[in-house]
Amino acid sequence: MILHNKTALITGGASGLGQATAQALVEKGARVFIFDLNEELARVTVSELGADNAGYAVVDVADEASVEQGIREAMEAFGELHLVVNCAGIAPPAKVIDRDGNPLPFSKFKKIIDINLNGTFNVLRLAAEQMAKNHPFNEDDGRGCIINVASVAAFDGQIGQPAYAASKAGVVGMTLPIAREFARYGIRVNTIAPGLFRTPIAASLPEAAIESLSQGVEYPKRLGRPEEFASLVVTIAENDYLNGETIRLDGSIRMAAR
């Protein structure tokens, strides 16, 4: 896919990995539409990207009506949708049994699943409906590309991550069957499983804590940079033969139990 003059939808696009992705895509000549719950950050991000290149909607990815409205606003703004990057997610610690012997509230488990897994599916299903209507943009009758975001926790879940690991494993698990289904429409589906990245949440940690986390990475001995994630998004979008895959982007880290 040639990204110039294409339109991308990025969930969680007002900060961290999503924001870096929005910047990288605009630099490639694409237009971006951001879904985020933080309207202030979304407005600032769009301002930095340029009003002609970007727009936003306040969207709860786990809410069907909210996503439907957001998709309508994206289509009204740019008319087409070619790329989706599902960055929105949460990662609160949640042991099955806490230190006081209390079980994890079922509502907390469900919320993590609802945002990370159900929210990802909610967005991609409605985005794909619009992509399927596109005119083919290459000789392979390509119409779109969906990039979901999982985590190394899908494979190396730590203590305190049963809900998070399950949600991200679900994202990995649905990648191939959806890629197979969407082949008839010329829509590719891939997933990135990031390791430890220097996002705003990580940046708030003491430098000693960041250094300790970095030691678990094989090479390079540091946290990933958001622009490195964004670079992989661009590569996946541009490479029309990359489909149905989950790619770990983690410096070869394998997470310990805790």
Rank of each mutant, 00 (worst) to 15 (best):
F78G: 01
G79H: 06
G79P: 13
G79F: 02
G79W: 03
L81Y: 09
H82P: 10
H82K: 09
N86V: 02
N86S: 13
N86Y: 08
N86T: 05
N86H: 04
N86Q: 05
C87Y: 11
C87P: 14
A88H: 09
G89H: 14
I90A: 09
A91Y: 15
P93A: 07
P93I: 07
A94V: 05
A94G: 14
A94C: 12
K95C: 06
V96Q: 14
I97S: 11
I97G: 13
R99W: 01
D100Y: 05
N102F: 04
P103H: 10
P103M: 10
L104N: 09
L104D: 05
L104R: 12
L104I: 03
P105W: 01
P105C: 07
P105K: 10
F106K: 06
F106I: 07
F109S: 06
K110L: 10
K110D: 06
K111P: 01
K111W: 04
I112Q: 02
I113N: 04
D114I: 04
I115T: 08
I115P: 03
I115R: 05
I115S: 06
N116F: 04
N116G: 01
L117G: 10
L117V: 03
L117S: 11
G119F: 11
T120K: 03
T120I: 08
T120E: 14
F121Y: 15
L124W: 15
L124R: 13
L126M: 02
A128Q: 10
E129G: 06
Q130Y: 00
Q130I: 00
Q130S: 04
M131N: 05
A132T: 01
A132F: 04
K133W: 03
K133D: 03
K133I: 00
N134V: 12
H135A: 10
H135K: 07
